[in-house]
Nucleic acid binder design. Structure first.
Length: 211
DNA sequence: CGTTCGATGCACT
DNA sequence: GTGCATCGAACGT
C-alpha cells in the first residue's frame, strides 16, 4: 500500500527505555523527539539538551528532602512525565527514570522545533514567522520556553510518555558530538557533570554555544 | 558584549 | 515566611 508522509509509524520509546540508569537515559534522549498532541494541533521538537537528577543523595534533585506531595511522581513508574511550576512562572518537563521507588528523572532543557512551528510561535507570543531577530532555534531553547511552546503545564504532570497525548519518539536522528558538563541554574551540587547536549547545536540553552 | 534583578505561584518547614 | 532545575528586560562596560 502507499505510505504517505503523515502515515509514518510513530516509534514511541517503550517503558524499558526509561527503566535504566538516569545518566544513560539522559544521554540516550538526545536526538529523540518530544511530541505533544492537543486539540490545537501537534507540536514537537528534537531533544538537544538534557539534565539528570538522581535520587535523594543528589541535593539538586527534588527527591532530596525525601518523599513529598510534589515529588511523588519521581518515586513512581519510569516513563511517566513529571511537570512542575518553577519560579511561579515556568513549567519544567521531566521524564521519570530508574525504577519504581528509586526517585530520579531527566529534565528536558531544549528542543530543535520540528512539527507545529506556527502553533509554537503563537503560544510563545512571537511573530508568526521566524526571522533574523526570532530564529527558529530560539523557540524551544530553555526548559521554560519549550514547555510554553508545546503547551505543557501542570495538566500534563503524570502523563504516560509511552502512549497518548505526550510521547517521546525515535525518528532515526543520528546524534554525534555529544557534550557533557555541569548542570545549569542550580545552587547545590553544581560540580556534577550531569548535563548533556548536542555540541554546537544552536537551540542549546545556557548563553554562548559550547562545544 | 557583560551582569543584575523583578516577576510570580506554590510546596515545604 | 523562604526559596526555587527560569526568563528577559534593563542596565553597565
Amino acid at each position: 500500500m502507499v505510505r504517505t508522509r503523515t502515515e509514518i509509524v510513530p516509534n514511541v520509546l517503550p517503558r524499558a527505555f526509561y527503566n535504566r540508569p538516569t545518566l544513560t537515559v539522559a544521554r540516550a534522549l538526545l536526538g529523540k523527539v518530544l511530541v505533544h498532541r492537543t486539540p490545537e494541533g501537534v507540536a514537537s521538537g528534537m531533544i538537544v539538551e538534557t539534565e539528570a537528577y538522581i535520587g535523594e543523595d543528589d541535593p539538586a534533585c527534588h527527591a532530596a528532602p525525601g518523599p513529598t506531595r510534589r515529588n511523588a511522581p519521581l518515586y513512581g513508574r519510569p516513563g511517566m512525565a513529571y511537570v512542575y511550576l518553577n519560579y511561579g512562572v515556568h513549567y519544567l518537563v521531566n521524564a521519570v527514570t530508574e525504577a519504581e521507588g528509586r526517585p530520579a528523572a531527566v529534565l528536558i532543557r531544549a528542543l530543535e522545533p520540528l512539527d507545529g512551528i506556527e502553533l509554537m510561535l503563537k503560544r510563545r507570543g512571537l511573530p508568526l514567522r521566524t526571522s533574523a531577530s526570532v530564529p527558529r532555534a530560539s523557540i524551544c531553547r530553555g526548559p521554560g520556553n519549550l514547555s510554553r511552546a508545546l503547551g505543557i503545564s501542570l495538566s500534563e504532570n503524570l502523563l504516560d510518555l509511552t502512549s497518548g497525548q505526550l510521547t517521546m519518539e525515535d525518528r532515526g536522528f543520528r546524534v554525534t558530538r555529544v557534550s557533557r558538563g555541569p548542570r545549569i541554574g542550580i545552587r547545590v551540587a553544581v560540580e556534577r557533570p550531569w548535563r548533556f547536549w548536542i555540541g554546537g547545536h544552536p537551540a542549546v540553552s545556557g548563553g554562548r554555544i559550547r562545544a
